[in-house]
Simulated assay, not measured.
Amino acid sequence: MKLYGFPGTRAQRALWGLKEVAADFDYVSVNLLEGEHRRPEFLRINPAGKVPVLIDGDRVIPESAAIVLYLAEKYPEKALLPVDLEARAQAYRWTMFAVTELEQPLWRMTRHMGLYPPEKRLAAEKELAREDFVAMASILDQHLEAREFIVGNALSVADCVTVYLMDWANELHLLDGFARLTAYMERLYARPEAPQRIAEAQKAA
C-alpha cells in the first residue's frame, strides 16, 4: 500500500488508521505548498487534487474517512469496527457526525482565516462557523461523559476520524471550555499508534 499525503492535513487520520491496523505501507509526500497536488501525475490519481489517497493494489481510495473505514474492513481482526450491529451503527453515526457537523465549520473557519484570498475572507462567516462548531462539539462533549472512547470500550473508526478534528479545533482555540474534549484528545494522542499532532507535523514538513 501507498499513502499519498502532506504533514498536518487529514492524511494524519489515514496514518492513524494504518498504524492502528499495523499495515505495511509506503508514504508518498505530496507537497501542497509547491502545488504538487495540481500536477497531472497526481490528478490522475485523484482528480479532486486533494490528499490523502490510499493505493492498495488496483484500489484507489481518496477521502480520509473512507480510508479509515476501508482499513477497518480490510483488517477486521483489529476491531476498528464493532462486530455488534448496534455498536457498528453507532460507529458509522459518529463518523458521519464528525465529517459533516464538526469538520465543515472547521473548514469554513480555516478558509476565511487564511486560505481564501484576502478580498474573499468574511469575518462574519468565520464567526458563524465558530458558533456552528461549538454547538455540535457540545453534543460530542455530552456523549463522552463517563466514556473513554466514542463507541464501546475500545478505539474505533469514529475515534480515528474525530480526534484529528479535536486537534484542529484546538489549534483554532475552539476547545476552550471543553475540558472533556481536551482530555479525550490528549488521551488518544498518548496512544503509541497515534500520529504526530498537527502542529508537530507542520513543523516537520
Score class of each variant (00 low, 15 high):
Leu54Gly: 09
Arg130Glu: 15
Leu102Ser: 02
Val99Asp: 10
Ala123Cys: 00
Leu122Val: 13
Gly177Thr: 03
Leu128Arg: 14
Glu148Asp: 14
Ser156Tyr: 05
Arg111Pro: 01
Leu155Asp: 00
Leu181Thr: 03
Ala205Thr: 12
Leu155Glu: 00
Pro195Phe: 08
Leu175Gly: 11
Leu3Ile: 13
Val21Pro: 12
Ile55Tyr: 01
Asp56Glu: 14
Glu41Trp: 06
Ala137Glu: 10
Glu145Ile: 08
Asp84Ala: 12
Met109Trp: 10
Lys74Asn: 07
Leu174Lys: 02
Tyr75Lys: 03
Leu115Glu: 09
Ala91Lys: 03
Glu36Asn: 11
Leu43Arg: 11
Lys126Gln: 11
Val83Cys: 05
Met109Asn: 03
Leu81Gly: 09
Tyr4Glu: 10
His173Trp: 06
Arg197Gln: 07
Met185Ile: 09
Gly114His: 04
Thr182Cys: 00
Ile61Val: 15
Asn170Ala: 13
Cys160Trp: 01
Glu77Asp: 15
Leu32Ile: 12
Pro117Ile: 14
Gly5Arg: 03
Ile61Leu: 07
Asp26Phe: 04
Ala169Asn: 14
Arg121Trp: 10
Pro52His: 10
Met136Glu: 13
Lys203Ile: 02
Gly17Ala: 05
Asp58Lys: 10
Thr182Phe: 04
Ile150Trp: 09
Leu140Ala: 02
Phe97Gly: 09
Pro105Tyr: 00
Asn31Phe: 01
Ala169Pro: 08
Asp141Glu: 15
Ala72Ser: 07
Glu145Gln: 09
Ala183Met: 05
Asp159His: 10
Trp168Cys: 06
Ser156Asn: 01
Arg197Pro: 04
Gln12Ile: 10
Glu193Met: 04
Met136Phe: 11
Ala124Met: 03
Ala91Asn: 14
Pro195Ser: 03
Ala14Ile: 01
Asp176Leu: 07
Glu200Phe: 00
Ser156Gly: 11
Thr162Met: 15
Ile61Glu: 05
